[in-house]
Design a binder for these strands. Sequence first.
RNA 1: GUGGGUGUAGCUCAGUUGGUUAGAGUGCCUGGUUGUGGCCCAGGAGGUGGGGGGUUCAAGUCCCCUCAUUCACCCCA
Length: 428
Amino acid sequence: MAKITSVRGFRDILPDETPKWQRVEEKIREIFFNFGIQEIRTPVLEKTELFKRGIGEATDIVEKEMYTFLDRGNEYLTMRPEATASVIRAYIEHHIYEKDPVAKLFTIGPMFRRERPQKGRFRQFHQINVEFLGQEDPRIDAELMSMLMYLLSEVGLAKLKLEINSLGCDKCRPAFREKVTGFLKNREEDLCEDCRRRLVTNPLRIFDCKNESCQEIISGAPVILDFICVECKQHFEKVKEHLGILHIPFIINTKMVRGLDYYTRTAFEITTQSLGAQNAVTGGGRYDGLVQMLGGPNISGIGFAIGFDRLISMIPDADGQDAKRPNIFIAALGDKAQSFAFSLCNTLRLAGIRAEMDFSNRSLKSQMKRSNKLNCSHTLIIGEKEMEKGAAQLRNMGDGTQESVDINDSDSIVEQFTVKPVTVNREP
RNA sequence: GUGGGUGUAGCUCAGUUGGUUAGAGUGCCUGGUUGUGGCCCAGGAGGUGGGGGGUUCAAGUCCCCUCAUUCACCCCA
């Protein structure tokens, strides 16, 4: 029979890697807890319309990267390419703003975009999203970014670069957009092929172009910060001020624009070296018009997304951080001992002890080897002799010492391996 | 969607200008003690050379097609 392989761009995360994912996720949840951010879980499948309206019809994501299909009910559905639109949809649908004027939400899960896979880019990838809703105060922008920087350093990333910019609002951005378009129209012939196309579809993206000649042209282009309105300007000033208060280093990148249409005012991106071309670990920004655009009240919001896969690939391996719990391997020799061990193994597990055994009834040497390989702290040896005497040999795999234990007194074995519970006082 | 690289054992990879039984390390199994792991030693299993076609007396090696993968562009987290 021919092998069935996974779908292109969809990968398996194997047992070797999952402890790292768990460790990082645990750390992140802990930080979110301290910052008062609650988890929300939304479906992977949404109506296509949600993303068309939320992300923007003319964006690359919507135009050519979404997994969209006509459902049996004659309705277009899409595997979510990002999470913000879904979270806002749920926020509106369940009237979360009625319960509390401010909502701090996070979600973790797979997203889907049909791009050509490469380093740090998969068709199913994972994001950690945070959305702060109902807060227009620039301090929340600073709070969000400082938390993000803290979070990334806590999970082990170094040499992070925070870049910020303001994209203005729907009052001032259109004017700037026109200004830029006008400026670039005059130099259209010198732009690269892609940028000539962008001039029509999304002129602001030309700022991002890596082509040298385009960069040269754009360096003389109007700067958005000179065009944003007084309110946006003040907001941006306050954001910078409060990042300073929290001692968060940042650089202003007036050329940074975002790829999704819903962003307004504050936009930011954090990059590192070690990722190859996909150097963006995380990015985000303010989206004050999005809630309304999706049929809700006029509520402001700001959020970010971390590329979980990229994050994981940059974090050094645990190296013993996944602490070995006391555990035991039962080496049973002979049929009688094997069936006794089968039952004992279960008893130990039910008592909360990680226990393993080998059903093969192989030589003691082989079973010892396996115990060693599994990194067991102890091996309980039960053979014919032990079955007769009712006393097995408990070998410490660290120092090689052995002691005799009563095999019918499983309670005392359990006691030896039980970790003393640590009491945690957590405010309700 | 565009361009380049790479597909040889479970894994990481060698393999000279085409040449006879395709190798190493690691992992796996067994043995070196009547029933004691790690280190060491010995032996063993494991390969349709990604797939298909072609050139040739002869192809893992050269050519074409195809698939997969990877890096970059694009785009983004």
